[in-house]
Computed example of a mutant assay.
Amino acid sequence: MKTFFTWSMLSVLITISCNANHKSNSELAFQNEKNHLIETTKTDPNTRNIQVALLLDTSNSMDGLIDQAKAQLWEIVNELSYAKCGHNTIKLEIALYEYGNDGLPSQEGFIRQVLPFSNDLDEISKELFALTTNGGNEYCGKVITTSINQLNWKKNNDHLKLIFIAGNEPFTQGPVNYKDAATDASEKDITINTIFCGNFRQGIDTMWKHGADLTRGEYSAIDHNRETIHIATPYDDIILELNNKLNGTYIYYGHRGAQKRELQAEQDHNARSYSPANAVSRTISKSSGFYKNKSWDLIDAVEDESFEVEKVAKEELPVELKDKSEKELKQYIAEKSNARKEIQGKINDLNKKRMQYIKENSKKDDSNLETALLNAIKKQGREKSFSWEN
């Protein structure tokens, strides 16, 4: 079937000189990692976070679920990118866990944190596409409690903090009672939403609905084996051509910059592996405010007023930029930045026409992962003054 959803270390390196006040590359790398950790924990009063922890059953019967997750990631991101909350900046963070797989450590309860909260959409896509299924024991209460304890959940209750757990075995299995897990979630203002892969009534009988009810979350039953239908539109080819131009505006830097740019291309390929329409959805995501790569892209990095491009070491730049003067480099960045804005503007204009075409030519489908996620996020978001416009 062809058919979804770590932070990298900011590597600003100061040119080494004989001046004793200058730090070494390794010292800077360490400091940047510390700064990154501080950045992810500090509270910005003008920011509202949407934190989504996805807990996916990767036992043998869940190939269809994983396929839906891969196929629908970008449409989910796109829909969330339209979120508003007053004059606040919206940030999306996604964490990923797998559970119920015999290939996972039994001492951990057959659970693995695939990715902590991250806004690196390429990394999220990479890890999602790397998931494989295997037989195992599915402990819902255990994986919920683990995600509550391990993840860096926002303290302020103005943020939207959601757990989505999907699977098809009884919710009661394992060493941790799901009722205790729900109590832990409620204490941190985290809402648990459950997605049963199978018959709606069976999910109720095996306590999946009760698991959601305890935190006022949403219960959904989906057909996890249903293939995702992507609607092709007359605008797709133009958007994909613009994606190639968009990729040309990225200026990598740092010791992992080239690697991260390769990752970007790899995730473009993964999206295309399902369908051109899925690749279009990813392109739309790359034109949204959620797709930022300041840890390796100079254009995104210079948006941060504290970033000093003149302190990036020449050896950390692409070959074609190593011999440019500071003035020439800044001019080059400005030109690429303007080009990116223009391309993204064209993509977003075309996407409005694309969305209208899809609306007029698609049938409503309530039995998939995307619908279950978005319906719950929007409903619970409205309770915290979030709204959605596109």
Rank of each mutant, 00 (worst) to 15 (best):
I94Q: 08
I94H: 07
Y97V: 05
G100H: 11
N101T: 06
L104A: 05
P105G: 09
Q107R: 12
Q107V: 08
G109T: 12
G109W: 02
F110Q: 06
I111S: 06
I111V: 13
V114D: 14
S118K: 14
S118T: 15
N119Y: 12
D120Q: 11
I124R: 05
I124Q: 15
E127N: 14
E127A: 12
L128W: 10
L128E: 05
A130C: 12
T132F: 13
T132G: 13
T133G: 10
T133N: 15
T133W: 09
N134Y: 12
N134V: 07
G135C: 06
G135Y: 15
G135R: 14
G135W: 15
E138T: 07
E138C: 06
Y139M: 11
C140R: 04
C140G: 09
I144M: 05
I144T: 05
T145S: 15
S147V: 08
I148S: 06
I148E: 10
L151M: 08
W153Y: 07
K155A: 12
K155S: 15
N157A: 15
N157C: 06
H159W: 04
H159R: 14
L160A: 08
K161V: 09
L162Q: 13
I163V: 14
I163L: 10
I165A: 01
I165N: 02
G167L: 07
N168V: 00
N168C: 07
N168K: 02
N168E: 09
E169D: 12
P170R: 05
F171N: 00
T172P: 01
Q173E: 09
G174T: 06
G174L: 09
G174S: 03
G174C: 07
V176R: 01
V176L: 04
Y178L: 00
D180S: 09
A181C: 12
A182Y: 01
T183L: 04
A185V: 04
D189Q: 14
T194E: 02
T194P: 01
I195A: 01
I195C: 05
G198H: 10
N199F: 03
N199H: 11
F200G: 00
F200T: 01
R201H: 04
Q202S: 14
I204H: 06
T206Q: 10
T206G: 00
W208I: 03
K209V: 00
G211I: 00
D213E: 14
T215A: 10
R216F: 15
